[in-house]
Design a protein around this nucleic acid. Structure first.
Length: 110
DNA sequence: GGTATGACTGTAT
DNA sequence: GATACAGCCATAC
């Protein structure tokens, strides 16, 4: 039997709450889940669900606001274009105004 | 249970 | 700024 309160489930739940036009980092999600060093797990979890609907994985980037996983979206520009269509300026695979675009689950969901 | 891997992060060089 | 290394944790074999 599989736990419904999976680590993945928590990750998906947080990612789903990211508002359009914003983005967060793996580390922030991991920290919110109490696993400050579990950023890799967040990415790993997403890797098993990036094709899952309802999970805007394109709104999750690394700590520098870089679209580290753009290459996994089918096309190298899919992630960037999707973010731009939501109002996020992306340049060189990096989110502009990252500090202001950053959505911190610890603060927003506190 | 040991080893390898991973959409990460931070520090050091 | 780029490269190298270490840390952390869950999953797969």
């Amino acid at each position: 039997m599989k736990k419904e309160n999976d680590f993945f489930n928590d990750v998906y739940d947080v990612v789903r709450q990211i508002p359009a036009g914003r983005a967060t980092s793996y580390g922030a999600i991991a920290a919110y889940l109490g696993q400050k060093r579990g950023a890799r797990m967040v990415g790993w979890a997403m890797g098993n669900s990036y094709n899952k609907q309802g999970v805007p994985a394109h709104r999750v980037v690394n700590s520098q606001g870089i679209l580290s996983a753009r290459h996994l979206f089918g096309t190298p520009t899919a992630m960037q274009e999707r973010l731009e269509s939501e109002g996020v300026n992306v340049k060189n695979d990096k989110i502009q105004n990252w500090k202001e675009r950053f959505w911190d689950p610890e603060k927003e969901l506190h």
